[in-house]
Design a protein around this nucleic acid. Structure first.
Lengths: 195, 195, 195, 195
DNA sequence: AATGAATGAGTGTTCATTCAT
DNA sequence: AATGAATGAACACTCATTCAT
């Protein structure tokens, strides 16, 4: 939304439409024509804003990252303890409303860009590292005063990250909640989250 | 290979070529033309063997499943204990030779077929369940005589499955071995695999 | 024309249509759509026969070269002397029926491919050299027994070539016959063509 | 340059940039976007100065004509005789610095505007006639006192024009200097330019 | 069983031009 | 006088699929 006029800008409409379509149908299965039709924008206007379709995707992923990080932070913000914050991560993950039921948009896109040096893969890597860092910060609080080395905290973050990633990957395949529950169970035992 | 004539059949050449290309470049990024060119088959011959491109993919995934299950079974076969068999699962997973460094081909394909009822998603689900059942059978042996209920074994299988899935998803993003090592560490502690 | 069936092949229809359109409107001003519409061919069929639009052009130029050389040879064939053959070259050049009134198709195309290494420029150069060699062979006969060195014949060929080129370039600009007549006049004097 | 402010005007920057780009790449191969980008001008500003792209080209050709005529006049001005002036025309023609190595910009443009009534073709014709007239004026001086009729001088002008045109057309095809040298040799003999 | 030739509908991208400001 | 944003139509090219042989 443009803060002054209150109208969504052309660029923003394109990003939002594309974010949705790329997630729902995949990158290659989504044509520029579909994006501009649903956004109600002329084709040449699209190319005035984005050099290529891949550029659009990169922008979508970057923007989605920011929104998602804000969302998840908000979702866990009012927890009473770091432990509960971790538990709420799994709740957030399991909620199709917040997280989408078609798996991780970043992993999905990465699967269509296998070229090692691709900009898309870079964004995906950056997003995942960013997410893992957030986990580390939460766990650092949780372990405070429990005489853990920095390295131990890092390792715990990687473990938690891996559990969440496993749940995220398995959920859309099986279309049910046991992956999230299973990952949470492991995390609770391993990091003494238990209430 | 045709067991009698010793020649690879046309159909088999198509499946093998497509399996490779779909995995390396993705489903939509791989054209029929590319497949038949690399397989050295005429286009109309292709459509004599497969109704559609999607049919080819389904066949590829089914066939790969069988090969992969056989491979992994062979890889862990000569382990001295169920615990070591589990550990070797992670070795196998971490070896790009055996498992490919572009992530799980089934998850990759699923990301391009988001339609819930798609035959591709069915195959993926079937493959993953099948794999999880194999894990359950291994763990059942490992827990034998340790007074575990059937349900407990099932849960352990789901946990192990989830750890492997997490490692499989995270590996190609970060292009290094810590995901597999991290997943193994959790598994060793949780299932007392340690030697 | 296919000699057996008596039908023009798809490829040949494309080449003939494109040769005409490229000459009438220029290379970039002629779209693939226009070519295939006038040839009555589907777009994908076009790309089954030619890798790119530029490929089509190269083929057109090569084919036109062969036809044109044959035509001009036929046109001057029944002359009674080499000198008359040279004079008939100018007649042929001045006849819009035989040579086209839009200038030299090779020079025209070259002007749209300024990149030094372009394949189109190569074909143009090859065509022009080929033509000059034909002139040299005619002049060699004309000068036979007049004690001219090989080098002198070569020089005369270059001079004749240059006169023809000048006439070819000037004609479509001024849309009248004086360039050809002027070039012929110079040639007659310089090479003693006069009857 | 604006004589008062010392700044190149917007219009002039557009003309100069376009003149260069049209010559280097051709008319249709040069987009408006490229012109305005390299000129550093907004698109709408362009259309404030020129009705269409073709208008811009016409302006470019007109302006270039004036510059070129002035240049060539300056180049031959300090020659000691009309004969040397003619010889210097060929020197000027053969110098890529002065004349460009991509052939005659007017012939090049004409090849992209085959429509007989096109304004571009008109400008080209006007330019060429203008040039031929200049040649006639030089030759008139050269032949002064040699009892030549007006008609004979006109014919000589056409001959000289044709030789220059031939050299201009052949040079960029063969990328070497023999066309100019050949044309000069013919001219020297024919018009007794020799010193 | 296998093929060479052909296709309609689509792809991503660029074009010269206009309009509201 | 100058602009940033937008556009419809066209561009060269590729797609998965079919058909006559």
């Amino acid at each position: 939304m443009d803060q002054v006029t209150g109208k969504t800008t052309v660029r923003q409409r394109l990003v939002e439409t594309a974010t949705r379509l790329f997630y729902e149908n995949g990158y290659r299965a989504t044509g520029i024509n579909e994006v501009i039709r649903e956004a109600g924008i002329a084709k040449a206007s699209f190319y005035a804003h984005f050099k290529t379709k891949e550029d659009l995707l990169v922008t979508c992923l970057e923007q989605r990252h920011n929104q998602m990080m804000a969302q998840v932070q908000a979702f866990i913000a009012d927890a009473r303890s770091p432990a509960e914050r971790v538990r709420r991560l799994f709740v957030w993950l399991g909620d199709p409303q917040s997280c989408g039921s078609r798996g991780c948009p970043y992993l999905n896109m990465a699967s269509e860009f296998q070229d090692a040096g691709s900009r898309v893969r870079e964004v995906v890597r950056w997003h995942k590292c960013s997410f893992r860092n957030m986990l580390r910060d939460i766990l650092a609080l949780h372990f405070m005063g429990k005489s853990k080395t920095t390295e131990q905290v890092e390792q715990a973050a990687e473990e938690l990250y891996l559990l969440l990633e496993g749940a995220l990957a398995a959920s859309p395949v099986h279309c049910c909640s046991w992956p999230v529950e299973t990952a949470l169970r492991i995390a609770e035992d391993r990091f003494q989250l238990g209430g």
